[in-house]
Computed example of a mutant assay.
Amino acid sequence: MHLLYLAVAVVFEITVAIAASKAEGFTNRRWTLITLVSGAIATFFLSKALLTFDVGVGYALWTSVAGVGITVLGALLFSQRLDWRKGLGIAVVITGVVGLQLSGAA
């Protein structure tokens, strides 16, 4: 169940990043509200996941998987550039996440 909580937290953290980019410095009320509500939901589910994960491992997984998701979605949805350096960074992050999972930390 902890992986499901973490997955939900990641989805809402990705939503936070996308909504925050559209909130125009919190001047756009609709996107500001989406940012804040998504952030609260992401934090709630992260806290549920951290009942099982070590805090450092859980937080590292949450931020790194969300970061990869945001980078990939930025390229797919917003025509942001995804070059070989970003691809290499994503590969390194994924390797780190797999390493954390294989360490038996969860």
Score class of each variant (00 low, 15 high):
50 L>I: 09
2 H>Y: 15
105 A>P: 01
17 A>T: 13
77 L>G: 02
37 V>K: 06
50 L>N: 10
57 V>L: 11
92 V>W: 04
91 A>D: 08
48 K>R: 14
20 A>L: 14
89 G>I: 02
101 Q>C: 08
92 V>L: 11
65 V>S: 13
80 Q>H: 13
42 A>Q: 00
15 T>L: 15
52 T>W: 13
11 V>G: 03
17 A>H: 14
71 T>L: 13
2 H>E: 14
12 F>D: 01
80 Q>C: 13
77 L>A: 12
106 A>R: 09
79 S>E: 14
86 K>F: 07
9 A>W: 02
101 Q>P: 07
31 W>H: 14
82 L>Q: 11
64 S>L: 12
85 R>K: 15
67 G>L: 03
103 S>I: 04
90 I>Q: 03
17 A>R: 02
86 K>P: 02
18 I>S: 06
51 L>C: 01
30 R>G: 07
105 A>H: 00
25 G>T: 10
3 L>D: 06
26 F>C: 05
51 L>V: 04
35 T>R: 04
92 V>T: 06
44 F>R: 09
96 G>D: 06
91 A>W: 02
20 A>F: 05
85 R>M: 12
74 G>W: 04
58 G>Y: 12
70 I>Y: 00
87 G>F: 01
97 V>C: 12
22 K>S: 11
92 V>E: 04
12 F>L: 02
63 T>I: 15
86 K>V: 01
106 A>D: 06
67 G>W: 00
43 T>E: 09
92 V>Q: 01
60 A>T: 15
28 N>D: 13
98 V>F: 08
19 A>G: 12
3 L>S: 11
88 L>I: 10
87 G>D: 08
35 T>G: 02
22 K>H: 12
102 L>F: 14
16 V>N: 09
104 G>W: 07
87 G>Q: 07
27 T>W: 03
38 S>T: 04
54 D>L: 10
16 V>D: 08
21 S>G: 15
92 V>N: 00
10 V>P: 02
